[in-house]
Each structure stands twice: as C-alpha cells, then as structure tokens.
C-alpha cells in the first residue's frame, strides 16, 4: 500500500482549506446565530421574569387595593345600611306624625261635622220649638187674651209712680209728637179710649194715639213714640227668648264639643225658658230714628 506523498500534501492543504471554508461559512454563522438566539431568549426570559415580577407586584398592589376596596365597600355598605335604617326610622316617624296629623284632622273634621250636625239639629229643634210655641201661642191668643194683656198693661202703667213714668218717656219728646199703638187684634172703642188717655197722660201728649192691627205680634201691644218703642208682645217674648237661647248656646259651642258637655247644652236650652219670664227691658231695632227702647212691663 503505497503512500503518495504529493497526495498527502495536497490532501493536507485541501483539508486546511476546508477547515477555513467551514469556519468561514458554517461554524461562525451558525454559532453566531445560536448565540444571538440564546441571547435573545435570555433577554426574553429576563423580560419575562421582569414582567412576571412586575405582574406579581401589580397583583400584590391589586390585592391590596382590592382589600382596601372591599373594606371600603363594607364600610360604605354598613354606613348605607345604618343610614337606611335611620332614614327608615325617620320616615316611619314622619309617616306616624303625618298619620297622627291626618287622624287629628280627620277627628277634628268629624267633630266639626258632628258639632255642625248637632248645631244644625239644635237649630232645627229650636226653630221647631219656637214655631210650635209661636203656633201654640197664636192659637191660644185671642181678643180675650189681648184684652187681659191690655188690662195688665194699663194696670202696670197705673201702678208706676212719677219717676218711673218720666224714666220711660223720651227726654226730647215734643208735646205734639204722634204716638202709634200696634196690637195683634183690633181693639174695642172703649179699650182704645182707655189706652189713649193713659198714654197721653203718660207722655203728656195732646194728639190721640194712632191704632193699627199687626198679626205678627201674636198677642200684646207695641207703642212707638218719637222713634222709641215700648212693647209687650208675645212676639217680643219669643224674640227675646230666641236671643237669650242663642247667647247661651254660642259660648257653650266653643267650650264643650265633647259629648261630656252635653249637659251644658241642655242647661243652655233650659235657659231661655227661665229667662222668658223676665225678658230684657230694651232691645235694638232697625228702625231709622235711632235708639229704641222696650219696656219690660
């Protein structure tokens, strides 16, 4: 087996050339690429690690914030619940108070209605009573009663002393003033003369009194002189009675709306019947000449 030394030398050169070529075109670029990749991967891993750390930090931060948020939320919820509770209590209180007000108003309305009804009832009863009384008295009234009243009138006038008569007569009365006498029934001639004389004597008049019949008076007589009026009629009695009854009812209405005060109502109703026996001496009239007086005979 011969060794060709030229070939050996040539192969050695060839191999060294191949080593250079391989180094130039294979190992260097490939190793460089691998290194670059490894470096890149390392960098990416480093980045990933940094990112992971950052993410962990952010996670911790998030968890911390989440914890704070949860706590705040719980606190807010508690506060809201507390507020809602107090609001509920407040609203309930308000509702209760407004219900109380409404109930009070309703009760007041009810009471007002009841009192109005009662008042209405009382008024109607009163009117009924008065109309019945008026009717009864009208039915009972007659010329006989009239003459008895006139007799009583005249008797009382006769019993008066001078002072009393002067007190009754108007202070500024002219001697020729006209006197009007109104009666419920027409009087007899004799009665007219007796009354005329008595009146003339009473007021020192010259003129004969003028007699008129007024059915509304029920019974009794009314004397008007110089804008003043002296009367003793059933109508006046009834009016006085009505006035006194209403005067008694009015203060009682305000003071006693409750049924417990019903007794007072009764008492006030009873009042006029008692006072009817002593009707007031004077009363205001709408007649134009001014103040009028009424004598309780």
């Amino acid at each position: 087996m011969p060794i060709d030394w030229f070939t050996v030398a040539a192969q050695a050169i060839n191999f060294l050339l191949l080593v250079w070529l391989m180094k130039r075109f294979l190992y260097k670029p490939v190793l460089r690429a691998i290194d670059a990749r490894e470096k890149r991967i390392e960098e990416q891993l480093g980045d990933a690690k940094a990112l992971k750390m950052e993410a962990l930090k952010e996670k911790e931060e998030f968890q911390r914030k989440s914890g704070i948020f949860d706590r705040e939320r719980t606190e807010l919820m508690n506060a809201a619940a507390e507020k809602a509770k107090s609001e509920k209590i407040h609203l309930l209180e308000e509702a209760r108070s407004s219900a109380e007000i409404l109930r009070a108003k309703w009760r007041e309305d009810l009471e007002r209605d009841a009192s109005r009804l009662e008042e209405d009832f009382q008024r109607r009863v009163r009117e009924e009573v008065f109309s019945i009384v008026r009717k009864t008295l009208s039915d009972l009234a007659g010329e006989e009663l009239e003459s008895k009243i006139i007799d009583l009138f005249l008797r009382r006038l006769g019993k008066m002393d001078e002072e009393e008569r002067k007190g009754l007569a108007p202070k500024t009365m002219a001697p020729d003033a006209s006197v009007r006498l109104r009666t419920a029934f027409s009087l007899t001639e004799e009665q007219r003369n007796t009354i005329g004389q008595e009146v003339k004597k009473l007021f020192s008049l010259k003129k004969e009194p003028e007699f008129t019949v007024e059915k509304n008076l029920v019974a009794g007589m009314e004397l008007s002189v110089s804008g003043q009026k002296i009367s003793w009629t059933i109508d006046d009695y009834l009016l006085s009675l009505r006035e006194s009854v209403e005067d008694l009812i009015k203060p009682g209405k305000k003071a006693s709306p409750s049924p417990a005060d019903g007794g007072k109502e009764d008492a006030s109703l009873k009042g006029p019947s008692r006072s009817a026996k002593n009707p007031p001496k004077k009363r205001q009239t709408s007649d134009p000449p001014g103040e009028e007086e009424k004598d309780n005979l």
């Binding site: 040539a10 192969q11 060839n14 075109f25 670029p29 490939v30 460089r32 690429a33 890149r40």
Partner: peptide, 28 residues
Amino acid sequence: ATLVFTWVIMAVLTAGSVLITSRLSSGL
C-alpha cells in the same frame, strides 16, 4: 481521484453551508 473527490466533498460542503447560512435566522 482522491483529490477530485475531495474537492467534490469540499465543494458540496461549502456550497451547502453557504446556501443555508446565507439565510440564517437568529429568531425563534
């Protein structure tokens, strides 16, 4: 023939290396 076939191998190896490494990627 030894030299000629050596050159053939050299040529193939070098050409292959040049061909492949000319488009090397350092990416993933």
